[in-house]
């Protein structure tokens, strides 16, 4: 057929519109149906409800450290000595792979609170080891200082500071 009448053209248009509408609706419906199957793998309501942890700071001696669990991860709560604080503040930021002053990493300088997971590949660093008086990750040899900043080794960034607040002088809420 070499020529088409207007009627036939209308027919073709109507058909194309139908096919596009059907395909579009089918795609939208499929996408909507897939969403619950993806969403179900996100944290469930009971997991989210446990997303904050409260820590009582009484009884953590100066110079000692406790590890608490927050959202399934270890969090180091370190009661720093004067010496620790001085060492953390007395650093030339230009020497750091991830420059960050100590004052930005603490609310109260006596207390250093950070997620105890090496920023390299997720191991838990050991306290009191390494070349900088802070932490040392045994997996691939990353050294952290008394502010939890990376100083030497493969880790790309400082240990993460979780969101937390002081409820009063001796209680903090992480998360």
């Amino acid at each position: 057929m070499t020529t088409t009448t207007p009627e036939e053209e209308n027919g073709v248009k109507r058909r194309d519109f139908l096919y596009i509408a059907a395909g579009g609706l089918g795609a939208v419906g499929t996408a909507a149906a897939i969403w619950p199957f993806i969403s179900q793998m996100n944290p469930s309501a009971d997991v989210l409800a446990l997303s904050t942890t409260e820590v009582d700071l009484d009884g953590i001696e100066t110079g000692s450290e406790v590890t608490v669990v927050w959202q399934g991860k270890p969090v180091f709560v370190r009661h720093r000595t004067e010496e620790d604080i001085e060492r953390a503040e007395d650093v030339d930021l230009a020497d750091l792979p991830d420059p960050e002053p100590d004052s930005e990493r603490v609310i109260n300088p006596e207390w250093l609170i950070m997620v105890g997971i090496c920023t390299h590949l997720g191991c838990v660093p050991l306290k009191g080891q390494g070349d900088f008086g802070g932490w040392f990750c045994p997996c691939h040899g990353s050294h952290y200082d008394t502010s939890g900043r990376i100083r030497k080794g493969p880790a790309p960034a400082n240990l993460v500071i979780p969101p937390y607040e002081f409820l009063n002088d001796s209680n903090i809420k992480i998360g």
Partner: peptide, 13 residues
């Protein structure tokens, strides 16, 4: 019941 109450869209699945 955890699926029915807490998991995202668990009741639906």
């Amino acid at each position: 019941e955890h699926i029915m109450r807490d998991v995202n869209y668990g009741w639906l699945l």
